[in-house]
Design a binder for these strands. Structure first.
Lengths: 331, 331
DNA sequence: TTGTAGGCGTTATCAC
DNA sequence: GTGATAACGCCTACAA
């Protein structure tokens, strides 16, 4: 049996309410007694029982994050950033890798104050699961009732294409995966096509390169195929994710194509790691910190007053210049 | 204010202790009343208050896992397996990406029943933090007082080298990272050297190849350098991790070396993904499921009776044959 | 400045 | 079968 404030009260010769006050650093207790009580508590290795405290206080000051797909790394940087952001608000973050409904069930047991969901698949979730629990989703809209932080992928592609066009590029390739499962990949693809039409770019056999996967590996192979054909190569390439872009760079280098002299490259995913690739990569997408901040801010808004939060919140992308793009050679 | 068993009691015209029993499906309450109570509870959207329950029950049936380095993927498969294993015991798993002491502090607030720690750095942790809390660490020994699940990396290397020697190989290279920070990498390296001496293998300029990092990337470059020298190539290579091995395969293929005809390869990390590489890789190390099971079993032992658990528990490696090794050509 | 007492929502132990 | 009632450990008026 662990030690409680009653035990301490006895040892200190005061009532346990005094102990409670002292331990909560209330100004209502004489410094002397306070010091004494605290000392005794330390000596006895007192550990507050949070279940009891929460029973009366109702708040855990903790936010739960549902992240069923740990094995896909892409979000790990974001998770870390979100944690930091949450801590700035004086809250803690806890993680579950279960599916959304199981995780939320568990979080409720812990009296979590709010939930952020990263679930990839659009799942039917009984509304009772998240009834009067501040909850938000990122990536895929979980449910039409749950506020959702979205990224404008289309606009990101537009930004990238425009940038390249302004540099004089015309033969631009999109290297990405468009498995129909992932809405985000599809939007990037569609965004590229839109931009393509908008700037009236010439269609070549290489305009769209399907990687068939999201690993560096997939980007590498796809690009390898691309550069090994006889037809005229693109002067610029847009990679649809960090990993894919890493593969692209590798494949281009192996073909002795100098970036950006021979070919320009832009990668999606605005994360610091882009700077550490073989060639520091100019990238598009909302900076990871911005996404984190947006998500966390929204969650706290939700906790304050549920109604003031829009159902969909869209984050706009930026373009970060690094060393992988150059003016197109006049051809 | 949410609804409690008292409210339900009133609506059902029974005492709240009866409601409690009914909701816990006690056989001590007449089916009729039970049904009625459950119906009312549903109607009212009753949600039990777990803080209150735990105040009396002391158990949360949840195990906390401390994993500060999400951004390093290597462990994610293991985390998932551990979660599954824990669920087999009817428990849940929850994750924190904070440092061990912060995470444990938080877990205690949630009345977690036990803790598993993946922390990479050996940190001084005040014993009071984990006083009478079942706790275990994996990877690096956290502290001499905390039970620790270890992997016998040396033996793994011995296994790999022996296997190759039995196939007739003599010129064997070790491609790995031995940054002094990571004890595990060092042990792999040392294990290789031991085996090397044991079998009296000839030292060549390529016996040891330092990758200087743990990414596929690092393995790729190191191997590239290796195969591009003029000196005689090894007939077999051991890669010290999954990612590094992926890089090795890539580099060998680019040099048009056929695996295993021209060169045999073994990779450390006995995970299913090894089968999906360009060449399915024969690998060494404890199967990931075995590690998970070992960790979880130990944790539950610890919860049952703290004293019966050895401080260090060592898991022994296995060798999984796939398609990357062949008999050495007689030279 | 300190102590008393009621309550938070459950479960568990008794009586009835 | 059902109902009081006492914990569980803590917080917070309010009383002293």
């Amino acid at each position: 049996m662990s030690i409680t404030i009653k035990d301490i009260a006895e040892l200190a010769g005061v009532s346990y309410s005094t102990v409670s006050k002292a331990l909560n650093n209330s100004p209502l207790v004489k410094p002397n007694t306070k010091a004494k009580i605290i000392r005794i508590a330390k000596e006895q290795g007192y550990e507050p029982n949070f279940a009891a405290r929460r029973l009366v206080q109702k708040q855990s000051h903790t936010i739960g994050l549902v992240w069923p797909t740990v094995e896909r790394v892409a979000l790990s940087t974001l998770v870390t950033k979100i944690k930091e952001e949450i801590e700035k608000h004086g809250y803690s973050m806890i993680l579950s890798i279960n599916s959304a409904s199981t995780a939320i069930e568990m979080f409720k047991r812990f009296q979590i104050d709010a939930v952020i969901v990263f679930e990839e698949t659009k799942q039917k979730m009984d509304a009772s699961v998240f009834a009067n629990l501040p909850i938000i989703s990122y990536g895929t809209a979980l449910n039409n009732e749950i506020p959702f932080v979205d990224v404008n992928y289309r606009q990101a592609m537009l930004l990238g294409v425009k940038y390249l066009v302004d540099l004089g590029h015309k033969r631009i390739s999109f290297v990405g995966d468009f498995s129909p499962v992932d809405q985000r990949q599809i939007e990037k693809y569609e965004g590229f096509l839109e931009a393509f039409e908008k700037y009236n770019l010439p269609v070549t056999p290489h305009t769209i390169v399907n990687t068939g996967g999201l690993d560096w590996y997939d980007g590498y192979h796809a690009t390898k195929r691309l550069v090994e054909t006889d037809s005229t190569l693109p002067t610029a390439v847009i990679g649809s994710s960090y990993d894919i872009s890493a593969g692209i760079i590798r494949a281009l280098r192996e073909k002795d194509l100098i970036i950006p002299k021979d070919i320009s490259v832009i990668g999606y995913d605005n994360i610091p790691q882009m700077a550490n690739l073989e060639t520091p990569l100019t990238s598009i997408g909302p900076p990871i910190d911005v996404i984190a901040k947006e998500i966390v801010t929204t969650v706290f808004m939700l906790m304050d007053e549920k109604d003031s939060v829009p159902t969909i919140q869209t984050i706009h992308p930026e373009l970060k210049e690094r060393a992988s793009c150059a003016i197109a050679k006049s051809t």
